[in-house]
Every structure is written in structure tokens, then in C-alpha cells.
Design a protein around this nucleic acid. Sequence first.
RNA 1: GGAGGGGUGCCUGAGUGGUUAAAAGGGACGGGCUGUAAACCCGUUGGCUAUGCCUACGUUGGUUCGAAUCCAACUCCCUCCA
Length: 417
Amino acid sequence: MVTYKSDFLKELSARGYLRQCTDEAALDKLACDEIITAYIGFDCTAPSLHVGSLIGIMMLRKLQQAGHRPIVLMGGGTTRVGDPSGKDETRQLLTDEKIAANMAGIRQVFDRFLTFGDGPTDAIMVDNADWLDELNYIAFLRDYGRHFTINRMLAFDSVKSRLDREHSLTFLEFNYMILQAYDFLELNRRLGCRLQMGGSDQWGNIINGVELARRVDSAEVFGLTTELLTTSSGAKMGKTAAGAVWLNSDMLSVYDYWQFWRNSEDADVGRFLRLFTELPLDEIAKLEKLEGSELNEAKKILATEATALMHGRAQAEAASETARQTFEEGQTAQGLPSVEVSKAELEAGMGLLTALVQAGLAQSNGEARRHIKAGAAKVNDKPAKDERGQLTLDDLNEDGVVKLSIGKKRHALLHLT
RNA sequence: GGAGGGGUGCCUGAGUGGUUAAAAGGGACGGGCUGUAAACCCGUUGGCUAUGCCUACGUUGGUUCGAAUCCAACUCCCUCCA
């Protein structure tokens, strides 16, 4: 491992963020000498970011902590084009309204990780629609298009994998990398941005920007990528039974977010502690040395610390307590994700299948039925065998709720409105 | 513009007139073992008001008692030629 002089790269390196860098020696020197302005772009393809983006968000945070200035680039313009990286199929074109709504959802998380404002190291948020929307086609092609060769573009993974797999890649999407490269140039001109960061899948797009800035403005800018977030067993991370691990709490409850981290594989605990918590490294070193079931303590700390960064300490502690009651004491913890039902509905008798679906424990009645058949469904911790079963007021426990479970880990409560 | 090949479920990929809601693998989920881990073993994997009905093999139409399978048009992709 290279030894860095700057606080920024020292920290990133020590915590295992770094994958590739266009010129680490020069970037290291720059980080020592001046305040670097750096950015990461986030496309607005969903109403929330998910854990896959968290590593980037953390990097922006580290950047600011090291005394530099982060830019959050919202891809209001590029989302209208669609990044082909890692996608087999052309993305559905999103409407402008949808993009605006997604952007509003995504913005929320950054306040938790960054300090925004007008100071020299305060974070800023910009939208690339501000400059992409007004580009003139011919002028753009003449000024910038001539710096890109098709030969090179075809060699990029994002393009190549599409072509290799005999999937179509539209000209629209093909332009994505040019626009992303142009973003970097534009941010360099407007805000003096010197560094673009991103996941390793963005490497191709990033070096395009670095190249473009050098060719057009003779500007020296840098690119830096992180490892993609995968589990030790190689799976892409970020999925749960319910879907993606969203960062916004209206998309995924704080409790489920906590659970996601709690369920990390043994082999990932140390790595995740370094990447996604701000515990001191020596403490992490101790935690990851724990063996066997003792490692569960480290997982709990990981879960609580990571959740605290995202949702605040109080909520993280609450999720932790809910989990403790549920798993260690076998109680019906009030903090479990819950859905409300009307008294009338329960009085009339509510189908067990319907209840499981409403509680988000199954996607369809059919799935709920299968779970019941497999013996995975429980009502108030008692196995539910009857697919035609009804829930009534009698099923309310002493706390006035019905606890529904699928398997050992997934629980939800029915509350009366 | 010409010739040939192809479009199957979350993904890869079999299937060339009926027993096909569609082989197999992957992934995912559930059960077992455990430590809310990994590995391993077993099971499940279109929807519904469910002994039935609906939707589904690129799209639309046709042939047939019956079509993912045959025909036609359209569309998209791949390879070669121009």
C-alpha cells in the first residue's frame, strides 16, 4: 500500500475505500497543498438512493472532514439520457416530473452526511440539467464530440458488455459517457472542481472526463474510484427480501435498515465497519478479531453505528433495542415495522393472507399461501397452518397488536387505527 | 438495400403442434443445521374471489379441436455482403 501524506487519502486508504486513481501522487500532493473541490454524480432513477451509493456518500463526507469541498451533482440532465453501465436493457425513459420527484427524494439524505453552505469547505449541490439542457447540438459536437473516438468508446465496458451480450444500446445511451465527461469539464470551469469520485463501474466515465478537461482546457483533474459494494461471497449487495436497501426511511424502515447491517456476513464485518462507520480504526481492529458467535456483538455495533449515521443515533438505538427484544427475549417489540388496520376490519375477520400482504411480508396472496404451506408463517409467534385463517379481535395480544412473522427474521405488527 | 440466424419466466438457457405455467442452472425466498453468519442438505419460485379462472414464450393477425411451437405482416437484435 502506498503511503499518503494528505489526511484525505490517508483516511480513505486506511479504511479501504480506494480502488483506482488516475494519479495518486499528484492528487496526494494537491490535497496537502490546497482545498480540493471534488464531486460525485447521482442519477435520479429512483425516489431514493440505496446502500450501493453509500460508499460514495461516505467518501464525500471524508472529503469534507479532511478540509475539502464536496459537490453533490444531481443528474437531472443525465438521468434523461440513462447510464448504460451495468444495465442489460435500455432504461425506461423517465418523465421529467418523475425525475424531479426522484431528485427531491434523493436530496434528503445528503444533509445527514454533509454540511452545506457558502463557506470554503461547505458542500454544494448542483444539477447538471443547468448546463446540459441548454447545449446546442452542433456546437457541442464540434467543440467536444471531436475529442471522442468511437474506437475508444466501443472499448468501454459499459458499451462492450451490451454489445457482447447482443443487447441493444441506443445512440441516446451511447452519449451518456460524453455528457458525464462534459459534466466534469463544466464543474471544473464553474467551481474549480479537480476530482471526480465514484464506484469502480464509473471508472470509464470518469477517465473520459479527465481526458476531456485535459484536451479542451489543458486542466489537470483527477479521478478516483472505490470498490463496488459486494459481500464476501461475491454477491452484489443491496438487496433484501423486500427489495433494495433504500436509504430513505419512507422506502425502508429504520429497523429494516439496521437489520440489513446486522445480517452482514462474518467476513464482511471488519470491512464494513471501516467503510460505513466512523469508529476509530484500532477499535475496529479489536472488534473484527472476535471469533465465532462473539462476532455478533461486532455486527450489532456495525448496525447501530451505520444506522446512526443515516438516521440519527436515537433511531438507531431504538432499532437496536427492538431487535434485542425480538431476537434475544422473544418478545413482541413495539418498534417492529407496523401497519394499521381499522377495528371494523378486524372485527369482521381479516384474511390471514391479506394481512401478510398488507404487512409487507409477502408480495402476493400466492406467496403468503406458500409461506403458510411451508410452515414459515406465524401469528403471535404461533405457527399459522391454515391458509384460510382469519384474524379477529381475539388475536390482539395484551399490547393490542397482532404480531405476524415470516421465517425467523421477518416480523411486522398490525396496529389498530 | 441483399442473405442468413435469432427475440422464452428475475437472469442464463432448453423446448419445434397436445401430458407446457414451460427442462436445467443461477439468483431469490422458506425449512433444517447454526450465531439473526458462512458452507451444506431439503423445499418453494406468474396472478386470482381457486377442485376453477385469468395472464404469459417480441407485436398483431391467421391456420387448427388444440400453438411458445405452423403461416403472414410488423418490429427489434446478431452475423455476413453492399
